[in-house]
C-alpha cells in the first residue's frame, strides 16, 4: 500500500496503490490528513488507478476525504477507479455524494 502526492497551486493529487482494506486504511487516512493539512487544497483528486483491492474500509477513506474538502470549501474528485473498487463504492451509494471521473 502506498500514497504518492503530486500537485501545485492548491491542486492536490493523491495516488493510492495497493490493497485498501482495514489493515491498510489507517495509514492512507493519516497520509490524506497530512497532505490536506499541509497543502490546504482547493481541489483534491484521489487517483485510485493503482488500487488492487478495496472493501468497505475504502468507503470510510473516501468519505473522510470528502468531509475534509467540504470543511475547506474545496472539491473532491475520485479518478481512475478500478472495476472491483467501483462495484464496492456503487453498492454503498457513494456516486450520489462523490464525483467520479
Amino acid at each position: 500500500m502506498s500514497v504518492t502526492c503530486t500537485g501545485e497551486d492548491r491542486n492536490l493529487r493523491l495516488t493510492v496503490s495497493g490493497e485498501v482494506d482495514h489493515h491498510g486504511a489507517r495509514a492512507i487516512m493519516q497520509e490524506l490528513d497530512r497532505q490536506v493539512d499541509a497543502g490546504l487544497p482547493r481541489r483534491l483528486t484521489l487517483d485510485l488507478s493503482g488500487v488492487t483491492f478495496m472493501d468497505s474500509s475504502g468507503i470510510a477513506v473516501l468519505l473522510r476525504a470528502y468531509r475534509r474538502m467540504a470543511e475547506l470549501g474545496g472539491a473532491l474528485t475520485v479518478a481512475n477507479v478500478p472495476p472491483q473498487a467501483l462495484k464496492v463504492l456503487r453498492a454503498a451509494g457513494l456516486e450520489r455524494i462523490i464525483r467520479f471521473e
Binding site: R26, M29, D55, S56, A60, L63, A91, A92
Partner: peptide, 22 residues
Amino acid sequence: QPLYTTGSEERSGMGFTIMESF
C-alpha cells in the same frame, strides 16, 4: 441495516450490505 455501525469513523456501516449484494 445500511449505515448502521457501532464502530469509529473508520467504519461506514456498509459491510453487511456489501456481503448481501455480492
